[in-house]
């Protein structure tokens, strides 16, 4: 008979994990059935099955427009956050300047400052720059929120990277752009993919900044919010499910291209 140490403990832990998973997935378990409801209002459990709310979403150019705009905003936000954040993470990791540790902590500031405060401040600046109502204005604002993810994740990746490898590459005849491209970045791939994913999702999901800055050109979360204020019907559930599916696809791509991304980068 195989021997098990502390069997009761592992069963308890399994039950605990199952409960936490249930808690995590509960919203999905409600939203998904409602989106397929035959009723004209939010009702759980739904009285019957129908695709009508998905149909309504697809038929409404307002929803489609908002979806495309949100994808654009999230894509630009990701590009900006990576373009600015990765070099910043390198600087914070490599610099010998006094006080660099403090600077490193400061990069988390956008997470600490309440988004509503940030929104009000940015509204003032963006109004002057005439960026209100422009989709790229929202993307720029989202970049501020996404940057800490990038700096923290890439910074963690860099800390576990063996700098002797860059010396080795230099000694073998590589110039520094090649060293970064061929030796350093490939090994940071899990961190980079995680950072890009979180940047994308944080923007795609963001409501507060979008409410202040998007004006008439609404992002998807803003459109959903307005929709709830005006008419409560299960379209919102259908949109949510589609949004969840999109994020799930992004998550799938993340684990496909960033072996160990999101799970190993922070804990390493």
């Amino acid at each position: 008979m195989p021997r098990h140490r502390n069997r009761g403990g592992s069963i308890l832990l399994g039950i605990f994990a199952a409960l936490v998973f249930f808690f995590l997935l509960l919203p999905l378990l409600v939203v998904f059935p409602i989106s397929l409801s035959s009723a004209a209002y939010l009702q759980f459990p739904p009285p019957g099955f129908s695709w009508q709310w998905y149909q309504r979403y697809l038929d409404d150019p307002g929803w489609i427009e908002a979806t495309i705009r949100s994808l654009q905003v999230a894509a630009l936000c990701t590009v900006l956050a990576m373009g600015l954040g990765v070099p910043l993470a390198f600087f914070l990791n490599r610099s010998r300047l006094p006080g660099i540790r403090v600077l490193d902590r400061l990069t988390a500031a956008p997470i600490i400052v309440p988004t509503i405060i940030l929104s009000i401040a940015l509204y003032g600046v963006f109004a002057r720059l005439q960026l209100i109502g422009e989709w790229y204005g929202v993307a720029i604002a989202h970049t501020i929120l996404a940057l800490p993810f990038v700096v923290i994740l890439v910074g963690a990746g860099l800390r576990s990277f063996d700098a002797a490898q860059e010396q080795a590459a230099a000694g073998l005849g590589a110039a520094w752009p090649w060293i970064i491209w061929r030796v350093t970045l490939p090994q940071l791939r899990p961190s980079l993919v995680s950072a890009a994913f979180l940047s994308f999702v944080s923007s795609f999901d963001e409501l507060v900044l979008a409410m202040f800055l998007s004006g008439a050109s609404m992002t998807l979360p803003k459109k959903m919010f307005d929709n709830i204020l005006m008419e409560i019907d299960p379209t919102i559930a259908a949109v949510s499910v589609l949004q969840i599916l999109l994020v799930a696809v992004a998550l799938g791509l993340t684990s496909l291209f960033g072996r160990g991304a999101l799970t190993t980068t922070i804990t390493r």
Binding site: D162, A164, Q167, A170, G171, L172, V183, P186, R189
Partner: peptide, 20 residues
């Protein structure tokens, strides 16, 4: 001169092989 122009081969203490 920078390391890359010295044409010097080096074996590091921990080998510094590129793991990827």
């Amino acid at each position: 001169a920078p390391p890359r122009s010295r044409e010097v081969g080096m074996v590091f203490q921990n080998y510094a092989l590129f793991p990827h």
